[in-house]
Simulated scan of single mutants.
Amino acid sequence: MTEKSFAADLKLYDVEHLLLAETGEPPVSARDAEARDRVWEMAVRSNPALFDGPVVACGGVEWEGPRTLRLFWARVTYRHYALRRVPGAVALPSLFVNVLQPDTDGRVLAVRMSPSTAAPGRWQLPGGSVEPPEVGAVLDEATLAGQAARELVEELGVEAADEDLRLWAVTRGENGSIGLTYRAPARAEATLHAGLESARAADRARGREPELDAIALLADAAELSGLQGAHADYLEQVVRRFTAAG
């Protein structure tokens, strides 16, 4: 089966292997570029913590087999996504990695983003946007697992070896965003709480605002309704699938 994109109603898919290929950013007209820059500058005035750093966007996907996905990626900066608010402009979907971190009681860890982030108060899995490799280097499965492991230790103070993170699912969400979800080994609840406090203290010691301000352990997707604040569009699907599997 080969498709250029996910079906419109597809939110979560089993994927065991990724094949990655670099592609280019679509051309942007002068009019759209000017409008994009205005949108970005307004966003920065509203949230000065925003940074126009390098990031990877998704240029498309093709299914190479039942559980093998070819993913095309492009080098952009965060400013690129301001095109979503420019009528008629084309913006690539974002590409991110996140980590399904279970505890030893079979619950799923959800984290809440702090007020200084681009998604204040949102509940999601630990993770972040995919970063591009150095020019000449490759972006492959091992690199992506390594980025997921780095997000886990930076945000949650929990270390995991790259090889211990297994690609568990691919999600498709708002604006066609593609999420690569890696499953980590189970941890005790006390370890997860201690890790969060350690990571928050380390951020403050560096003069930075912590990315996370709370965590929750979910035994069932229905418990999402008890969390104060919005949650990422993929979170309910991920929690439901994991807890249903026991």
Rank of each mutant, 00 (worst) to 15 (best):
P54Y: 10
E163G: 09
R204T: 06
V61P: 07
G246S: 09
E151G: 05
L144E: 10
L12A: 07
V170A: 10
M113D: 09
R36V: 05
P132R: 11
D164S: 14
W63Q: 12
G24K: 14
Y13L: 10
G226Y: 02
A8H: 06
R187E: 07
V239W: 06
W73C: 09
A184W: 05
Y13C: 11
V61W: 07
L156V: 09
T117W: 00
R187I: 02
E155H: 02
I178K: 01
R172K: 12
F242G: 01
P132N: 07
V135A: 15
A222D: 15
D203L: 00
L19A: 14
T191N: 00
G246A: 13
E174R: 13
G106M: 08
D220M: 04
L18Y: 08
G179D: 10
Q124E: 10
R112P: 06
E141K: 04
A188R: 15
A245D: 12
S198E: 13
G60W: 02
A221P: 13
A49K: 10
A8T: 09
L69D: 03
S198D: 12
A148C: 04
E223R: 12
R206Q: 13
P133Y: 07
A145T: 09
D14P: 05
A149V: 06
Y13Q: 11
S29E: 06
E64C: 13
Q237T: 09
R206P: 03
L18E: 09
V170M: 07
Y182T: 02
E209Y: 04
R70K: 12
L18V: 10
F96H: 13
V28K: 06
R187Y: 05
E16V: 06
L125V: 07
S5H: 14
L152C: 02
L20K: 04
L10W: 03
A194E: 15
L217I: 02
A142V: 15
G128L: 05
K4F: 13
V111R: 05
E134K: 11
G157F: 02
A216R: 04
E134T: 10
A214P: 10
R79L: 10
H17M: 05
L10C: 11
V55L: 13
E223Q: 14
T191L: 08
E154A: 07
C58S: 14
V130N: 06
G88W: 00
A57P: 10
D162M: 06
L83F: 03
T23M: 08
A160Q: 10
N98P: 01
A160L: 03
E223T: 00
T243C: 15
R241C: 01
G106A: 04
K4T: 13
A202C: 03
L71A: 03
E25F: 07
A7E: 11
T117H: 00
M1C: 08
A201F: 00
G88Q: 01
P54I: 11
L12I: 14
L192W: 01
L167Q: 08
V90H: 13
C58A: 15
T68P: 00
A137G: 08
P87W: 06
L71D: 03
L235P: 01
